Amino acid sequence: MTATLPEWMTEGLCAQTDPEEFFPAKGGSTKAARATCKACDVRAKCLDAALTRPELYGIWGGLSERERRALRVTKEEAA
């Protein structure tokens, strides 16, 4: 059985880019992935999905796992 991707995933610029760009080796550069995310129309949906799941690896919505974790903590503290 094949999982159906959310529509925003197929519309993202990352769908047209090498996936390894978004999952660099430890200590590798995330500059290219962040630039791709910055120009992407579905960045907010991507980030929301990564915060909801949560995604533990890679660049999602332009943020690293550490940045997403900090954002979740900030949102929880504000609530």
Rank of each mutant, 00 (worst) to 15 (best):
K75R: 15
A44Y: 14
E65F: 05
P24M: 02
C40Y: 00
D18R: 05
W60Q: 11
R72D: 07
E55A: 13
C37F: 04
G62L: 03
G27R: 08
K45H: 10
K45W: 06
R43M: 14
P54A: 01
G62M: 03
R66D: 10
R53A: 11
L47H: 06
G27L: 07
D48Q: 15
C40Q: 01
A35V: 06
P54N: 02
G58A: 01
G58E: 00
E21G: 05
R66M: 08
K45V: 05
L51M: 14
A39C: 01
G27Y: 05
P19S: 00
C37P: 07
E55R: 09
G62V: 03
P54L: 01
V73E: 14
P54Q: 02
A44P: 14
R68T: 02
P54W: 01
I59D: 01
T52I: 11
P54S: 02
A25S: 03
K38I: 08
T17Y: 06
A32P: 04
A49P: 08
T36K: 11
L63C: 03
E21V: 15
D18M: 05
A32E: 11
G62E: 03
K31T: 12
R53P: 00
G27I: 07
A70T: 12
K75L: 15
T74H: 11
R66S: 10
R43I: 14
F23S: 05
V73L: 15
L51V: 09
I59E: 03
R43D: 10
K38Q: 14
E65P: 09
E20W: 05
G58C: 00
D41L: 09
E67W: 00
K38C: 10
S29W: 04
T52Y: 13
A39V: 01
E67D: 03
R53I: 11
T52N: 14
K31N: 07
R72A: 10
Y57M: 04
R34K: 15
C40S: 02
A70C: 07
G27D: 05
D41W: 06
R53V: 13
G27N: 08
L47D: 04
T74M: 13
G62W: 02
R69G: 13
A49R: 11
R53G: 04
